[in-house]
């Protein structure tokens, strides 16, 4: 009996690896206790009440996404990594939620559009930075030959120019890092908004029915 419960819990855990550790442990502990208290004898009995581990995991993920969607905005306080994780979990939650296919198509299209726009902006800036820094070093190497020749004045000019380019590149680099952080935070806010709209409406408020007496 305990073996059946253990294997169910193990499978559930395997399907919840995307959740933060503390949240996963909490939900795993809850259902482990639940199954022991319910004295479930067969796997079929568990599945009848809770669904398969996969189905249960999907519900848990959708609920989790809904709960982080409705969190007050932590923009600026969260690191980019945490923001990306939030976005990822909301995406997973939206896919796990029982919502209509047309809506999923719209959301996927929207997400792809956002990601493409995001990449284009970042790649554009990265190219400028790379051009400045690599170009600067390239010129710097070339000028050393000139410095000790008759054209030392030209060499000096290029030396100065290359240093300016390198420094400019470095300044822009830090700005880009900031910009990426800002964009990720904005995306997280946006995804929270979508999550709230989609998950609250389509998941939370339904399904509760008054039982027949």
């Amino acid at each position: 009996m305990s073996k059946i419960i253990d294997s169910y819990i193990k499978e559930l855990n395997r399907n919840l690896l995307n959740l933060p550790d503390s949240d996963r442990q909490d939900v795993i502990d809850y259902y482990h206790e639940f199954l022991l208290d319910g004295d479930f004898q067969t796997e079929a009995a568990i599945v009848e009440d809770l669904g398969t581990p996969k189905i249960l995991a999907r519900k848990i993920l959708a609920d989790y996404a809904a709960s982080i969607s409705s969190q007050p905005d932590t923009k600026g306080q969260q690191s980019s990594g945490a923001n990306l994780k939030t976005i990822w979990l909301i995406i997973l939650g939206i896919f796990a939620a029982p919502i209509g296919i047309p809506l999923v198509v719209v959301i996927v299209a929207l997400m792809i559009a956002i990601m493409i726009a995001f990449c284009i902006v970042v790649i554009g800036f990265a190219a400028v930075v790379a051009a400045l820094i690599i170009g600067g070093f390239f010129i710097l190497c070339k000028t050393f030959g000139l410095l000790w020749s008759a054209q030392w004045a030209t060499g000096l000019f290029y030396l100065g120019s290359s240093l300016v380019a390198i420094v400019l590149g470095m300044i822009l680099f830090t700005l880009i890092i900031k910009l990426i952080g800002f964009l990720v935070a904005e995306c997280a806010t946006f995804f929270r908004h979508i999550g709230r709209k989609v998950l609250k409406k389509h998941y939370f408020k339904t399904k509760v029915t008054a039982k027949e007496e």
């Binding site: 939900v27 809850y30 259902y31 639940f34 009440d49 809770l50 669904g51 249960l56 519900k59 848990i60 609920d63 709960s67 399904k207 509760v208 029915t209 008054a210 039982k211 027949e212």
Partner: peptide, 13 residues
């Protein structure tokens, strides 16, 4: 469950 027809997984959230 004796009041509402909910599934077992509704209570945890």
């Amino acid at each position: 469950k004796s009041i509402f027809a909910i599934s077992d997984s509704t209570v945890y959230p």
